[in-house]
Structure formats: C-alpha cells, structure tokens
Computed example of a mutant assay.
Amino acid sequence: MFTGIVEELGEVTAVENLGDSSRFRLRGPLVTEGARHGDSIAVNGVCLTVVETGDGEFTADVMAETLKRSSLGSLTTGSRVNLERPTAVGDRLGGHIVQGHVDGTGAIAERTPSEHWEIVRISLPAGLSRYVVEKGSITVDGVSLTVVDAGPDHFTVSLIPTTLALTTLGLKESGDLVNLEVDIIAKYVERLLGDRAPEATP
C-alpha cells in the first residue's frame, strides 16, 4: 500500500523491449536505499516489483497488460517519473490509501497558472467519473490530490508549488497522459450496494 506522497523524482535510464513485456531501469537513489529483490516501488502510481538494484538504480519488469492500461508504455530513456516506496505499518498516512493499481489514463486538458499555485483540468475515461467527487481524493501519476471540481468527463486539481517542483505534474503539458487511480473505498461501496440491490420485478 502507498499513500500518494511522492518521495523522489526519478528518471528512466533504460527500456528493454522483451516482446510481451518491457524491462525498465530507473534511477532513484532514495527509494532504492535498502531495496531488495521482490520489493515494491510505485512508478508514476503503478506498483512494480524490484528485480535488481545497484548504484542508485533498480530494474522492474512491466507486463503488456500494464503497458496497455497505464502511461508506462510511453516512457522512454530520460523520462522523469514519480517514485514512492510502500508505507510501513505505523507510518503516517500523509495522503490517502493508494494501491498502485491504475484504473485508467487521463490527459492533461488545460493548465491555468496563478501566482502561487496552478489549476489543472484532466480528462476522465468513461466509467470513472462516478468515483470522482468534489473534495474527494484521486491519485494522478502516483500523486495524492484533492479534487476541486468533478465533471462528467473531467476533473480539476489545484497544484501547490511543492507538487509542481517535486513531481512530474510540474512537467506535464496539454495532451500528456497521466495514470489515474480512484478511491478504493468508492469501488467497494459500489460493489456492496450493488450486491444488496433488490432484483427488478418482471
């Protein structure tokens, strides 16, 4: 489990195409400190398993399904990425509960800068808008954010200077894809209520 509080702005140092998957090498001296084979690290909000570590870098294999459902397939050597280690039991939950299981991708639709922050409008794929509510939580490229406004096919977030400076969200341009993970609690509530809904009478 993660919290959506990005620890490090890392970099892709190599991408190897393996046919039905890809192997990424990523630089992140902070998140690789003490990391071992089999550990998890979130990369732009996608939970990946560490294969090897060394010299401040780690490798991870990414299946075709993950490449298709997330924006990781568009990463190339030199791409910057948000990195976060799993939350340890007893740590503060600084953001919200994040699984690292991307629900879909959106695109940066509009950026409106202000003096001290920036409003960003992001498109929503069909089927996810019902999970996004005003003042609720959403994960964008692994960053825990509060929804400012929720529409049928988009939502907006307000980015503070720290988020703009220390995450990929400060680098994204209009049209760029971002990974989205909606609040897991909303999905569980929907499933529970759906199972309890009375059957329609003929």
Rank of each mutant, 00 (worst) to 15 (best):
G104D: 09
G94F: 00
K187Q: 13
D195T: 08
E33K: 14
V50L: 05
R111F: 03
E115R: 12
Q99L: 03
V43H: 14
L26H: 02
R121H: 14
G127Q: 01
G151V: 08
T163F: 11
S79E: 11
D55E: 15
T77D: 09
L145W: 00
M63W: 14
R191G: 12
L180S: 01
G95Q: 05
P161I: 12
E115D: 14
V102D: 02
D149A: 13
P161S: 06
D39P: 09
E181M: 13
D183R: 05
S174Y: 07
A165Y: 10
D141I: 07
R23V: 15
V46W: 01
G127V: 01
E7L: 08
V43A: 09
T3L: 14
N82T: 10
H116L: 13
I5S: 10
R121T: 12
G142C: 12
G73Y: 06
E33T: 14
G170I: 03
T167Y: 02
I122G: 00
V46P: 04
S40W: 00
S158G: 13
V132I: 07
V102M: 04
Y131F: 12
H96M: 00
L124M: 12
S123G: 10
T156Q: 01
E57V: 11
L171S: 12
F24I: 07
T105D: 07
T162N: 02
A60T: 07
V43K: 01
E16K: 10
R80D: 08
D61M: 05
I138S: 03
V6R: 03
S158M: 14
N44V: 13
A126F: 11
E33V: 04
A42F: 00
D183F: 13
D55Q: 11
S79N: 11
G10D: 07
I160M: 03
R69N: 15
F2H: 06
L166C: 06
A150M: 10
T77K: 12
D141G: 08
H101A: 11
I5T: 09
E199M: 14
G136C: 04
T201A: 15
F2I: 11
D61N: 12
V178I: 14
S137V: 05
G104I: 11
D153F: 09
A126P: 06
V89Y: 11
G19V: 15
A165M: 12
L177Q: 15
G45I: 03
V178L: 10
G56T: 05
V62T: 05
A186W: 06
N179I: 04
T168S: 14
H96Q: 01
L193T: 10
S158Y: 01
L166H: 12
I185S: 13
G56Q: 04
G175W: 08
S40Y: 00
K135W: 04
R80E: 09
H37G: 15
R69H: 02
N179F: 01
T146R: 07
S137D: 08
A42S: 07
T77G: 06
M63Q: 13
T13Q: 05
V102L: 02
A186T: 03
P113R: 09
E52P: 03
C47Y: 01
H154A: 12
L171E: 14
V6A: 11
N44P: 03
D91P: 07
E84H: 01
T163H: 02
L128S: 01
G54P: 06
L171K: 05
G10N: 09
V147L: 06
P202C: 09
N17Q: 10
N179H: 00
E8S: 02
